[in-house]
Design a protein around this nucleic acid. Structure first.
Lengths: 204, 204
DNA sequence: GTCTATAGGTTGATAGAC
DNA sequence: GTCTATCAACCTATAGAC
């Protein structure tokens, strides 16, 4: 066994490239050249470009969703609303703070959403999403199910946008937002999301 | 003058294609074939593929930002926080409800962010973004500037994600969220964003 | 303004030697 | 498992006739 094997080197480089450029704009030639491996290695190890991007995503999503399930399992009944929100946000934000490529690869691909990934996100998130909605409904009994769904989508959008555009946020705010302190970013997001969730209903 | 001229037909078709597939995955051959015009017409009217996508974006962004400026101009001093939030969200959501392609083309391209558009979004949003931050700060004097910036980014993320994924939201929520009623979606979003903004500070 | 034809380059994937 | 060589398809952009 060498220091790092071809397969995981390809995964690392591909994650970075897909994060920077997206799926359609990234060629296998770029990936294999950066990784210092042969062009044919991608097809040998992953079958196709689509197989590669799925492998890149799965490597990060599975541990995050496992951690989310573990946290939901540990909550009391009824669960505090804040803890449910944190169970969703924190595992992803912590991974993003440890794995630089993941900061954007997930947000980018979920925005680009190439056709062959259409079912993929539904599979990864369907059952877990329904569990979160059920828990949120218990934590905020005054809200109807439709409102819970909407607010979860808004929370996902805020998080996805933040993961995707960290450096843009730094730039456009002229340094007011320090994205380097990931823990502080996570707290800002949690606070905002909880504020959105505790609203009673329409404002007009 | 014919019923619809070549140039605006290309813009309409390109908007739809870029919305569905993004920039890199859309070829000029698809656009010109759908539009029933010649391949060379794109380069004649827009100079290049990049020129085309900029024209597609400008056609929608300019009126939206003009309307936002008009609304900011009309606010009292100090402005009610809710009205500032509405001044940002409503012009975009109303355009999205009238122009089906815009629902996704803006969110998609701002997520894909091809390199040549890097400066474009900054130009379109820089001055206006600073104006919104200043107005939000007046409307929520208890918050520091950094928190204002973060919450505006979260609001943009929630809106962008909603515009981009309307049909996905319908599907994953199993119909609980009716995206067809655009006005109701807009109200859900405004309510959520205001809730996030009125939070006093950290929750822990 | 619109067309055909094509230049000049890239892509994903694979066959077959080692 | 890794390599070279190559295929067939696709792309943007342009030159030049009408």
């Amino acid at each position: 066994m060498t220091a790092v094997d071809t397969k995981s080197t390809i995964l690392d480089v591909a994650e970075q490239r897909f994060a920077d450029q997206g799926f359609a704009a990234t060629s296998l030639r770029q990936v294999t050249a950066d990784a210092g491996v042969n062009l044919a290695a991608v097809n040998y190890h992953f079958g196709s470009k689509e197989g590669l991007v799925k492998a890149v995503l799965m490597r990060r999503i599975e541990p995050i969703n496992d951690e989310r399930r573990r946290r939901l399992d540990a909550l009391p009944d009824p669960p505090p609303l804040e803890d449910v929100v944190r169970a969703y946000i924190e595992p992803a934000m912590q991974t993003a703070s440890q794995v630089s490529g993941f900061c954007r690869v997930f947000g980018r691909l979920s925005a680009e959403r190439p056709p062959f990934l259409a079912g993929f996100f539904g599979e990864q998130f369907g059952e877990l999403g329904r569990r979160f909605v059920a828990m949120l409904a218990k934590g905020a009994p005054a809200l109807d199910v439709q409102t819970i769904w909407w607010r979860m989508h808004f929370t996902i959008g805020a998080m996805s946008h933040t993961l995707l555009n960290a450096e843009v946020i730094d730039e456009v705010s002229e340094g007011a937002c320090g994205t380097a302190d990931r823990a502080a970013v996570c707290e800002q997001l949690v606070t905002f999301a909880i504020g959105g969730f505790v609203q009673r209903g329409e404002t007009r």
